[in-house]
């Protein structure tokens, strides 16, 4: 299965993913067989009669930044939420690193806990805990899930808050922070478990453009450290300039997927062209 990254006839990839990663300075383990970090097999999800995900096959390499774009209702967010089982898929396979979950069998608690430890998630509406200080927000899971002492958790949290530029907010409550700051705190909170993958569900959609920029800057930095990221977004510039790969979804299917420059500048599928035109005309 290795190498079968491009699924739906995007035709002629001009640049392989290895090349894009290398161009961004992400070390690719040339020589060894590179295994995808995330692999989805015929993942499906229905709500009643409505098919939200229609047999999604997807592979994401370590260090890859994948942007998922597409019209609303196309299943982008659901796909993300199925990856960490916030919504259990009802068909197919999810594997991340050593964890492999089959949707047909009910997932065990310990499997789910390992899965969620390896996957950080950032929500459109931030979802910080409003009754805790910023520092507690970032430290909570380290103490309860990783079993760190409060002192070492807080030290790590301070590092992360510094990294997103918000060390001075540690003792504030989230309600006192701007939306952009809250989203950066949410990124720090997700990073606190040292995840292998970060999922972003429209992280800037609830923010005005200026505040969105500060969040995008943090995400760009994160991408540069080699973090594997899947980003559902309406930010076309992020898809084009930061991500390695872009995937377009519509009606629960992958319409087109390939190196971001190809897909964004030279889309092959009619549906993709229509979507991109609609976005650019806005």
């Amino acid at each position: 299965m290795d190498g079968a990254v491009l699924h739906l006839g995007s035709g002629k990839p001009t640049m392989t993913e290895d090349d894009t990663l290398a161009a961004r300075g992400v070390p690719s383990a040339k020589g060894q067989a590179r295994k995808p970090l995330i692999k989805l097999d015929r993942l499906s999800k229905h709500y009643g009669n409505h098919t939200v995900l229609d047999g999604i096959d997807l592979e994401v390499m370590p260090g890859e930044v994948l942007a998922i774009i597409g019209p609303s209702g196309s299943g982008k967010s659901t796909l993300l939420r199925c990856i960490n089982y916030l919504e259990p898929p009802d068909g197919g396979h999810v594997s991340i690193g050593d964890i492999s979950l089959n949707a047909a069998a009910p997932a065990g608690r310990s499997e789910l806990s390992t899965l969620r430890r390896s996957v950080g998630m950032v929500f459109q509406s931030f979802n910080l805990f409003p009754h805790m200080t910023v520092l507690r927000n970032v430290s909570l899971a380290q103490e309860r899930v990783l079993g760190r002492s409060r002192k070492s958790a807080d030290e790590r949290s301070m590092q992360l808050l510094k990294r997103v530029g918000l060390a001075d907010k540690a003792e504030q409550y989230p309600g006192r922070c701007s939306g952009g700051q809250q989203q950066r705190i949410a990124i720090a909170r997700a990073l606190a478990l040292d995840p292998e993958v970060m999922l972003f569900d429209e992280p800037t959609s609830a923010l005005d453009p200026e505040l969105g920029l500060e969040v995008l800057a943090v995400m760009r930095e994160l991408a540069e450290t080699g973090m594997t990221m899947i980003v559902v977004t309406h930010e076309m510039s992020f898809a084009e300039n930061v991500s390695d790969t872009v995937m377009i979804m519509a009606d629960g299917k992958i319409i087109e997927k390939g190196p971001s420059a190809d897909v964004m500048r030279n889309p092959q599928q009619e549906r993709t062209k229509r979507f991109l035109r609609a976005v650019h005309d806005r």
């Binding site: 608690r109 950080g120 909570l140 899971a141 899930v145 909170r189 997700a190 478990l193």
Partner: peptide
């Protein structure tokens, strides 16, 4: 309580009791 609070708790790996 907004549904996102439970989701965030689940997503950072807390078990139900926590």
């Amino acid at each position: 309580i907004p549904h996102g609070q439970r989701e965030a708790a689940v997503a950072i790996g807390l078990n139900r009791l926590d």
